[in-house]
Design a protein around this nucleic acid. Sequence first.
DNA 1: GGGCTGCTTGCACAAATGTGCAAGGACTGA
DNA 2: TCAGTCCTTGCACATTTGTGCAAGCAGCCC
Lengths: 339, 339
Amino acid sequence: MSELKPGRSFVSAQQVAELAGVSRSAVSRTFTDGASVSETTRKKVLEAAETLGYHVNHLARSLIHEDSGIVCLIGADINTPYHSRLIDAITRRLQAINRVAMVINTSGDTDSVEAALRQTLNYRANATVVLSGTPPTSLINTCLNSGQHVILINRDDHLDGPENISVDNAAAAREAFHMLHRAGSRRIAVVSSQAGTPSLVARERAFETAAGEAGLDVTITRAGPTGYGAGFEAGRLLLSGSHRPDAAFCVTDLLACGFMDAARVEFGMNVPEELCVVGFDDIEQAGWASYQLTTFRQPIVQVADHITMLLDGEDPLRQRGGSVSFHADPVWRRTVRPK
Amino acid sequence: MSELKPGRSFVSAQQVAELAGVSRSAVSRTFTDGASVSETTRKKVLEAAETLGYHVNHLARSLIHEDSGIVCLIGADINTPYHSRLIDAITRRLQAINRVAMVINTSGDTDSVEAALRQTLNYRANATVVLSGTPPTSLINTCLNSGQHVILINRDDHLDGPENISVDNAAAAREAFHMLHRAGSRRIAVVSSQAGTPSLVARERAFETAAGEAGLDVTITRAGPTGYGAGFEAGRLLLSGSHRPDAAFCVTDLLACGFMDAARVEFGMNVPEELCVVGFDDIEQAGWASYQLTTFRQPIVQVADHITMLLDGEDPLRQRGGSVSFHADPVWRRTVRPK
DNA sequence: GGGCTGCTTGCACAAATGTGCAAGGACTGA
DNA sequence: TCAGTCCTTGCACATTTGTGCAAGCAGCCC
């Protein structure tokens, strides 16, 4: 008879079995879907489990099945509106298919990325979703070699092993140019940040190309690390000169908010009369009355749905290395002149 | 000789031992701090591990120690600026002390809270941090009975078992009143939401009391579920009447942003000349040029530090049921008239 | 009642790891 | 060179769970 420690420590199946007067196998089978247990013993077991407060140990269970039920989300800047919404959507859907998310924050030192991916392997995560940033290819290969399922989001360099889910940045950026061009803008600035994320670079490039095809030159400004501050600074730099732009494509909504604030507060400009602005992401603040930003909606729901689809499939490894791209639809608000 | 599967599946210590020509115990000891291994075997083991891509299985390790290294963060509305910053800070510090965060999202259905806490127990989480919301007391007791370490953040009802970390909402709300009162405001509105979170209620109450002591009546408006939309709606309701308030204490910065936008966009009012506003949380947007909101700073860093301190202590259970309260300092910006 | 069928149940083993214990080996001092 | 000491190492058992296999048992049909 094993010793019962009522208050502390976790209850094991052995203790439940002893209280219920059955074998430990019976307890195990009671909590295993599709196992063969009679209704009477099932009842005894459930009652004993309730009394003792028993909860199946998923760690031990994962030793046997290869499925730990853990999915790692790794990313930097997770307090950003876009990222936090993405994490919100993914965690919610993962829970719906009985997985649980381990969030690994790679902000700060660069070594932390390596340590983070090691955690992924240590906990035998079912899959690793790389939300952003630029983890070295070697580390991704480490995961792949260990049989890990790797899902990359918004890395436009399409690697072979992992699954790629991306947004059609190029198409959206082209559309952004045409929106501004059609509105009559001819001196268009591109506002970006020093982050150098693949998606940001893709948006810059595609916009520049589309402008070139229309015979326009654009200047790309990268005034700070990321976000609102960089946008504000870019606005201060670009609008203080004598040759002011009449429109800006900001590769991120946060940049756009900063840019607009600089234009209005520092220079008293009117948007969209004197300055048109287009953003990207469609964060919550883009819809606020102070901004009413015309932008492109990140297909967050589709991305989250696709991830769960990949993980919930009967054979999650069947289409390894596949690539999916979702469209970012324009959201018309008030920062681009109509017609 | 166990079969080597090079590409797929995870590598076990047994395989490393065979390649290195030592016993499995030696492998185990190589990866255990403080265990006795000679330098030569350690080298052989590390080399073999590197070759095969071995990573210690934390799930199996956790079967032996009671320490799984997993900390559950459970909360709703995790895409909110305040919550995402809190999660950012906590995950970062947890990683620094070699723990990893499991994020459980309790937005949506109410049953999900129960399922979430079960996950906590299933994975033998080292501790459960309840970020917000109002999980039933019975579920918290379930965790405590299983020997779980429970840490509640910003629940002003101080329960016995769990650790409580809170913000001194009452003191800040009193200070908010005096800020507005000293600025000459006499018709002060309190803007809140229908969320009914303990912290929000505490702020409402304390402000009301302080106003009452100064001989002023305040009306509390709860115009929507939460956030910006509720603040905007409250602004529309309160400012359309003939008896406009000349100041508002918004129990959340998001509410304050919505309220200010309604005042300016819908009614063309000037802040702070015609209307003073004080918020709470000091989210990033409060510092944006469009708002420059005077508010109270959530002690996010202190809270995160305290959590890690509790978990990293030699005996994490030593001061069970302790309560700590941090002060929320005022951040003066431009939405309250000076002097 | 006997034989057959099918469900239930316990035993024993599997999964990957940490660790006490005893044995072995190397080194030192006399 | 021998005894003693200390470090290293392998064996075996521990952690918690799932499951194949065989035995047991009930029920049913002839």
